[in-house]
Design a protein around this nucleic acid. Sequence first.
DNA 1: ATATTGTATTTGGTATACCAAATACAAGAC
DNA 2: GTCTTGTATTTGGTATACCAAATACAATAT
Lengths: 226, 226
Amino acid sequence: MVLTLEKIKTPPKVSDIAYKALKERLLELDMSQLSDEGRLDERVLAKGLGVSRTPLREAINRLVVEGFLKVVPRKGIYVVRKSKQDVIEILLVRAALEGMAARLAAQYVTKTDIKKMKAVFSRFDPLNMDGKYAEYADANIEFHEFILKTSRCGKLIEMANSIFDHMRWIRFRAVAFEGRIKPIHQEHLKIINALEKKDPDLAERRIRSHIEGLAQYIEKEVDFLE
Amino acid sequence: MVLTLEKIKTPPKVSDIAYKALKERLLELDMSQLSDEGRLDERVLAKGLGVSRTPLREAINRLVVEGFLKVVPRKGIYVVRKSKQDVIEILLVRAALEGMAARLAAQYVTKTDIKKMKAVFSRFDPLNMDGKYAEYADANIEFHEFILKTSRCGKLIEMANSIFDHMRWIRFRAVAFEGRIKPIHQEHLKIINALEKKDPDLAERRIRSHIEGLAQYIEKEVDFLE
DNA sequence: ATATTGTATTTGGTATACCAAATACAAGAC
DNA sequence: GTCTTGTATTTGGTATACCAAATACAATAT
């Protein structure tokens, strides 16, 4: 052998592409204004994506398992609507998962990690956050992903990511942030503090109440979820 | 209309039957002795179940999403083997979910509930448990399902059940019980006690350490997981 | 005998044909 | 006009045909 070669990437499956495309469209969909009761047409979708029904159905089934779609036999495919109760339950699960993640993270976290996360938030002035919602939303995501990653628990990361998709789907981010961005920021700093102290109980408690606080806010203030 | 009729149940889909049958076979499978490296053959399975490939593939895909099977493009379908690390991670997630469930359960639990659960365990004499492993295993399942149910959180129940399937699959129940059945029983009673006191923090902590204890035991004593 | 290589077979992936249930709708009865 | 009811259409569900990649294997050269 005179040639040094590297493995070439296996060509992607059509069903995978269809899945990603369909999920993307779904996530950017505004549920609150769906025509036809959120009904989808297999054949139309297949035509639209330029694939046959078989791989498309595979994609649909995956989305059904994930809880984004619902198939009613011989009736149709429907976009699943989330009730306020659904959102609360999702947040409770998220609190449970991230709480455990924080516990583990407190065990593994390094000084470098802490420094990095502090840097992410140091760009924000707690007294002047107006107009920085979008920017802070990014930092927020980075923060929560940091905790997950630092937990070093693949299963936890996997399940939390699945939950995140549902969170993204429900477009209350903006409304949930407005007016709450200051306390949220303080909570973030407090959580980092607990991690720095390597206190699992404290870290868990703080991130749990952080997320449960969001749930309580939704419960009280949000009303566009039927 | 002179006849009073009730809705008839919609006929089950072939893919559903295939899914259930396949999953059942999988769960009763002893992974530690798989020929052919746990490879499955689509066409053989289809023939065996008496269905065509299409609904079978749907069933397979569901099992892939659930983490029981893995499909390697143009190679084959394989049974996923769980490493010790996988099991530990699953138990951590379970601890997180059931911990939150216990928290909620402490909030909702009634005196009747407590009485019922105490009755389940009162059949056992802590000093003489020998030969009651199977019986106690049933009580154990009933206990954990009770907490989930009492949490009244559908999402939590759903995700925990998915985890349970994986637990069932890994056949360490007998070995995990032997010699540990007494402390396990004590822990169960302690958890019920915390619920009775309606103390969410205590209930959460106790059930978490209960499950984490199992994880530590597996870590130390179990060695048949590669 | 061993190594190479062309070929048949097997595998999962995809497209398509067909079915039965659900539905829409129009023709006919009143 | 309204109500029935038969029929065409549309839907998701299933079976099957076909493809390309992977593999097994036999024929061949050395």
